[in-house]
Write a protein that binds this DNA or RNA. Structure first.
Length: 818
DNA sequence: GACTTGGAGGTACC
DNA sequence: ACTGGTACCTCCAAGTC
């Protein structure tokens, strides 16, 4: 039988003690297809140099006799092959060892401890990953498949199952999966402790809320069931009936699916939503992931966190904020309460609220699909994994999937003691940041290096496999510090070569996207950008297979050297450099813009390798301020206005979430007024008005909330700082507080009159939960001295205006003098 | 007891 | 633990006089 097929989900199972791969996907008519493939797991034993051929044959014979029997199954080596391979760039002879069952790879590898064996590798690589590499059955690519009907499964919910005989990659139209979004509402927050009150399901032309609560209304999307158990059964039915590829939730790995499983168990029913009739499988450990056989369960929260969060403005990654920013739609209003306390007519609101959550998840999933799909195609890992994995894992998987071209055997994942050792090493010297001079500057140009760290890695060939223990002829020498030099080979290593390709592809797809703006090209270009950006971090990441501290430190060192040299050149051309951070240089434009572009060309012609300097932009004006404690300029804090009047703020309180909105809004407005007008006059008037308002207690509570995230367990905080004290109080009040919760508080006047000689008591004693604070109850002194003034003081200082004394009556006269 | 200092903690920049 | 280092700033608590 011959069909067209696109792989969506991968899994493996044991049959007669051997491993079989099961791929679920679609055919050209969108029929659900499952493919079965026999696959023999393997790993490598790398031989030491100079082992004689005869000895190698002896060892192979010995290896072929190895068994690893357990109560679970009898495992053994199937056969061996001898190959000429590379390991970390060096030629090696290696024995490829095929085994009956992947799960016993470790047990068998442990028995290969002959003196002639240098290393054993790749027994720590996922079976699916190895399968995709070797058999080239890549996720979300179309294939023409020949195979025979496979009916050895009792019943599998697919239109057809084939055992693969031949496969060929083909070109076909882009695939779009059938997505369903879901969300549950429960009586208690803790997993399984309360009942599930309702479940919403949203797919294309499909909107439902399932509930077992009485239905005193006529909402057509609500379906009522006798009890929780019946509702859960209906949920299972819909998942089975609707023929979906992707089930998407938000925080659903940690909440919705575990909750559903727990409640199903309590009700004595099976949550058999897998195509094989199995229940969702929850992984053990801290980072729970919930898998459904044949259906890709995606927890969008995880994908958004690793892939979008750095580009989002949202203060938190709550569904409400993320949806609002990405799709311009919000959750409905609903104040959570136990179902027993919900009034009759409130239920409609509750159902609508629940439905809207799934609508948001559905739309977010549609929007994220190109990104998830492109990552899956580029990295060649299944959607389930790609949607959950961190950037370092993405980089690593990309490497592993591309080693074949280099004949490389993969390095092993570091074990715990190795990780510990790496972490003990501490930090190495990083980027250069220019010491700015506080002031308001006119006409500024910004240059920046494109993907600077990646370009450095490629240009200087930095990586684990090119790192040399000692100086060799024709090697690159890098000064890390005065008495620490390291060396790298000139011969190209696979890591820099791969990175160069990533950078090239990023450029290519960026260009293609500009010519043909569609979501997929954008996603493709973006995926390569993210991979390139994470590569340097990967080199210095303690958990990386290809960790190389020297390479990471050298990357930073060479980037420093490069930027400092460029700064010098720009200075020599007669420009005043005012700022620089890592890969960017700001300088004053005292000549025509044409001259600047000419200089840029010249600078580029002198740069080595793929290093490239780019014009980031011209700005009409910019402000740099001093640090709060000293008079020297603050780094990483500045604001710019471009020729179109667009303002860019970096580092100021305005862009920090741990400052109250009042301080942020006022600072932002002051920055804007100053940059637009070129002086502080209007800004001072504005500030004066605000101070009056604060004094008159006219500021809304919402503008006074200070938000700080709880980053660890409450008990492990050394000092009792305001947000931790408030968090404790929230816990006592039965509010959900855990690591990651954004704690909100308002500082109120000292009720206990703890004032000591006119000075207020500790902030934590005055930090109050926002809904316990009445309008106008806030502490004027705190918000003036600890929020407003610190936020604007250094800005006005640039104009020699002392704002500290503004709140006193006298100084107001002083302002009128301006 | 008032003031200084340093560390913990959080969040930004690139 | 889940990419890296650099930097700012607040609040508290210990240290100093």
């Amino acid at each position: 039988m011959k069909i067209k097929f696109i792989p969506i989900d991968y899994d493996y199972f044991d049959w007669n003690e051997r491993n079989f791969i099961k791929i679920v996907g679609r055919d050209e008519n969108n029929k659900r297809v499952c493919l079965i493939d026999e696959y023999t797991a393997s790993f490598w034993a790398i031989l030491k140099d100079d082992v004689s051929d005869k000895k190698i044959e002896d060892i192979r014979k010995k290896i072929e006799k190895i068994k690893a029997d357990s109560s679970l199954r009898n495992s053994s080596v199937v056969r061996t092959e001898l190959h000429n391979k590379k390991f970390l760039g060096k030629n090696v002879k290696a024995i490829k060892i095929f085994i009956t069952n992947y799960k016993d790879g470790h047990a068998i590898a442990d028995q290969i401890d002959f003196d002639e064996i240098e290393k054993r590798r790749e027994y720590d690589i996922n079976l699916i990953t190895k399968y995709i590499i070797e058999k080239k059955v890549k996720p979300l690519m179309w294939y023409e498949v020949e195979g025979e009907i496979f009916d050895k499964f009792g019943s599998y919910d697919a239109d057809i199952c084939l055992k693969i005989e031949r496969m060929k990659e083909i070109q076909e139209k882009e695939f779009f999966p059938k997505i369903m979004a879901y969300d549950i509402e429960t009586d208690k927050f803790e997993i399984g402790r309360g009942k599930i009150v309702m479940i919403s399901l949203v797919a294309k032309n499909f909107k439902k809320v399932l509930t077992w609560k009485k239905c005193p209304h006529n909402l057509d999307f609500v379906e009522c069931y006798k009890d929780e158990a019946e509702m859960l059964e209906a949920f299972v039915d819909y998942i089975q009936k609707e023929n979906i590829d992707v089930l998407a939730g938000y925080f659903s790995d940690n909440f919705d699916l575990p909750y559903l499983r727990a409640r199903a168990e309590k009700n004595g029913i099976k949550l058999s939503i897998g195509l094989d009739g199995s229940q969702p499988k929850l992984s053990k450990g801290n980072a729970i992931s919930a898998r459904i056989d044949g259906i890709v369960h995606i927890d969008l929260f995880k994908f958004i966190k690793t892939n979008y969060s750095q580009y989002l403005q949202s203060e938190t990654l709550s569904l409400n904020e993320v949806a609002s920013e990405l799709i311009g739609e919000k959750k409905l209003e609903w104040k959570h309460k136990h179902s027993s306390k919900i009034e009759k007519d409130e239920w409609i609101k509750y159902f609508e609220y629940n439905l809207q959550d799934s609508v948001l998840v559905y739309k977010l999933m549609e929007k994220s699909w190109p990104d998830i799909m492109e990552f899956s195609k580029i990295i060649r890992e299944p959607l389930f994994n790609v949607s959950r994995e961190s950037m370092s894992v993405h980089v690593e998987n990309y490497i592993i999937h591309n080693l074949e071209k280099f004949d490389e055997i993969a390095e092993k994942r570091p074990l715990n003691d190795e990780i510990l050792k790496r972490r003990m090493l501490g930090k190495y010297e990083g980027a250069f940041v220019f010491q700015p001079q506080p002031g308001l500057y006119e006409d500024i140009a910004f240059f920046d290096f494109t993907s600077m760290y990646s370009s450095v890695i490629v240009t200087y060939n930095l990586s684990l496999s090119t790192f040399l223990e000692k100086k060799e002829i024709n090697s690159t020498e890098v000064f890390l510090s005065e008495n620490h030099k390291v060396y790298f080979a000139k011969e190209k290593g696979f890591f820099p070569v791969m990175l160069e390709e990533i950078i090239k592809k990023r450029k290519q797809y960026k260009k293609e996207y500009k010519e043909n703006q569609n979501a997929i090209l954008k996603a493709r270009s973006n995926a390569f950008k993210l991979l390139a950006n994470a590569s340097y971090g990967y080199l210095g990441f303690f958990g990386a297979r290809y960790y190389c501290r020297e390479a990471a430190a050298s990357t930073a060192a060479l980037a420093r050297k490069s930027i400092l040299e460029t700064i010098e050149k720009i200075k020599k051309k007669g420009y005043k450099v005012i700022y620089s951070d890592t890969d960017s240089i700001a300088f004053l434009v005292n000549k025509t813009q044409k001259k600047i572009i000419e200089m840029l060309k010249e600078l580029n012609s002198e740069l080595p390798g793929i290093m490239e300097l780019d014009l980031e932009g011209f700005y009409k004006r910019g402000i740099w301020v001093s640090k709060r404690t000293t008079t020297e300029g603050a780094k990483k804090k500045y604001a710019l206005i471009d020729e179109d009047g667009k303002i860019k703020v970096r580092g100021f309180e305005t862009v920090r979430r741990d400052w109250c909105r009042l301080a942020k809004k006022v600072q932002n407005e002051i920055i804007s007024l100053i940059l637009k007008n070129g002086n502080e006059k209007k800004a001072l008037e504005y500030f004066n008005e605000i101070v009056k308002k604060v004094n008159k207690k006219e500021i809304e509570n919402d503008d006074l909330i200070i938000k700080t995230q709880l980053k660890k367990e409450i008990s492990s905080y050394a000092a009792s700082i305001p947000h931790v004290v408030v968090a404790k109080r929230m816990l006592e009040a039965g509010l959900p507080v855990r690591i990651g919760t954004l704690i909100e508080y308002i500082v109120v006047e000292d009720k206990q009159k703890n004032m000591k000689r006119g000075k207020p008591g500790l902030v934590r004693e005055r930090a109050e939960l926002p809904d316990r604070v009445a309008q106008g109850e806030y502490d004027v002194e705190y918000y003036l001295n600890n929020q407003l003034i610190p936020a604007v003081e250094n800005i006005f200082e640039v104009f020699n205006v002392d704002v500290k004394s503004l709140k006193d009556g006298k100084t107001q006269k002083k302002i009128s003098e301006f």
